[in-house]
Design a protein around this nucleic acid. Structure first.
Lengths: 333, 333
DNA sequence: CTGTTAGCGCCTTCAT
DNA sequence: ATGAAGGCGCTAACAG
């Protein structure tokens, strides 16, 4: 039985050309006579030939793999970035290889090293914080590197995202414009999630600009979640009653806050205004749609992957793409 | 400058042994003299040697890649499965390569073919439906194959999941036990999401057993979402008012249903009981925790990956692992 | 326990 | 526009 997986050689033999010619047709490189191309293509179809990627990578010392480093999969934001990346790759021969760092830079370094063993065409990573060793690996390698989510830093090669500081400021301006004055903050642990901190800083800036300051604040000592948002707002209200608006570190937390208000019969936004961040679907499905900021995660992933594939070489200067954000007015603030 | 990435040969030269010996040390295969191993290990550290995976795959015609085929990343359930898979792989040299099929079997086939070009050690796929061609590829290849989520089918090699039919029946039994009699169903499009259909079937079975039938039903013509759940329950109530409980196709839909009730001032569960499926965090963060069924997605992914790695060869007979489910009593039904 | 010998399947370079 | 030769870095036999 001819059940063996066919190789370039088999195709070449059947088409009556050299292996090299087949390789050229497959990779769409160099010029090929129309007639030859037809013969080769038909031989490929006939045999059901699929190129062996390992052999290709070894010979060219570069693979069709795109390494994707994500801090987490629990936070829906990152699967959405991945979705964008996937959308950009699906019609190409590139395949995403993913790694989850759990917000741990040493873990990132470990995964990065083992990814580089595949000689990927590019690395996409969510965030700008790396160990020195990781940075060295990313810099020395001439592969393309995209750093996502944030543009408040100088990237190694390409940054795609938006300014979280500006987003925080925008939240402050929105609330001030609406007449809120005693504005509190409810957050989660930002030692790992640096961007949450940037937004907080922006919020403070924005309030200061209006002659205000954060009226009260409480941070849950762990990752963001609806439950954390609910409980933390509850605790904040016990400690500081005279607040008229709360900015949350993200929508998960804000939705939790809304739940707290529902449970305690607090009228939103009359008694207390709530403001989130991300623009998740769940926020818009609340009885009153959440006032928040839309961060376009899918677009960030897609743009990054597309941009990387446009050129196999780095530009001399790092490139920054701002995907922006917009305020979702909602009805809670 | 010696900035070239070191190869096996470099390590062998430095350690004063043959390449093969280094290879054995790296792969931890065969027996090596303690002294030799030390010399090799130190040479590896000194050079910062990282094996070239492409070369290894080519030579052994099998890679350290695990192909993961997911129908979607928008539904939080699948990122969680992926999280489980990742947890099982993180301390091994295996790397997950992911593909998203968008519930499209032709797309699955395409991605599968390009994954197999990497000669992965195993394929993990969520679901049992495949095109004939996909099935052929999975069967003929002697690589390991895990089919996840569901165990209501005969797998190719390994199935990990639970019976969605039984879960549906359990929902029915729970509601009947609680005294509900006019039980409706609110769902989403199940032509793609086969498991939702299985649960529906189980629900009907369970009701029938109690001499009942689905009192009313409405399916949103698209994927599940909170918004869809909210609107579809709204429409159902216009059409059929005399219902005392609603089973939703999943928690997303159920949470949406809860939002509808909040908005319309419907007392849950006194006027209308709500029952979901999945046990998502958001359901438990509602003012009244959602009554639902916990499906252990993380465990499914982790168990699958672990089990696959235990043996590189398929057993003669397909193997099925039931990860089970449990009822979360909650307060909405 | 270790070394030798052949490739794995493809791509690159250089010819023609 | 096509072909020939060589090698990418590693592993699989087989020797010893």
């Amino acid at each position: 039985m001819p059940s063996e997986t066919p190789t370039l050689t088999d195709v070449a033999r059947l088409a009556g050309v050299s292996e090299n010619t087949v390789s050229r047709v497959v990779r769409n490189k160099g010029s090929i006579a129309e007639e030859t191309r037809r013969r080769v293509t038909s031989a490929i179809d006939q045999l059901g030939y699929v190129p062996n990627r390992a052999a290709g990578s070894l010979a060219s010392s570069s693979s069709l793999i795109i390494g994707v480093l994500l801090p987490s999969l629990s936070n829906i934001v990152f699967p959405e970035v991945l979705r964008g990346i996937h959308a950009a790759l699906v019609s190409t021969p590139y395949q995403p290889m993913i790694g989850v760092t759990d917000y741990d830079l040493r873990q990132e370094q470990k995964i990065l090293a083992s990814m580089l063993a595949w000689q990927p065409a590019a690395i996409i990573t969510a965030g700008f914080e790396h160990t020195d060793e990781s940075r060295r690996m990313l810099q020395s390698n001439r592969i393309r590197v995209a750093e996502l989510m944030d543009i408040d830093n100088r990237p190694i090669d390409l940054a795609v995202g938006f300014s979280h500081r500006k987003a925080g400021r925008a939240a402050a301006e929105h609330l001030v414009r609406r007449g809120y004055r005693r504005i509190a903050y409810v957050g989660h642990d930002w030692t790992a999630d640096r961007r949450a901190f940037f937004r907080y800083e922006g919020l403070c800036d924005g309030l200061q600009q209006a002659g205000l300051a954060v009226a009260a604040e409480l941070r849950f000592n762990g990752p963001s979640s609806t439950l954390a948002g609910r409980d933390t707002l509850g605790r904040l209200q016990q400690q500081a009653g005279d607040v008229d608006a709360v900015v949350f570190s993200n929508d998960d937390m804000a939705v939790g806050g809304f739940m707290h208000c529902l449970g305690d019969g607090i009228d939103v936004p009359a008694q207390l205004a709530l403001f989130g961040f991300n623009g998740l679907e769940i926020g818009q499905a609340l009885p009153k749609p959440l006032s928040t900021i839309r961060s376009n995660r899918f677009l960030i992933g897609k743009t990054a992957a597309e941009t990387l594939l446009q050129a196999s070489e780095r530009a001399v200067e790092p490139h920054i793409i701002d995907t922006g954000f917009d305020i979702i007015e909602g009805a809670t603030a």
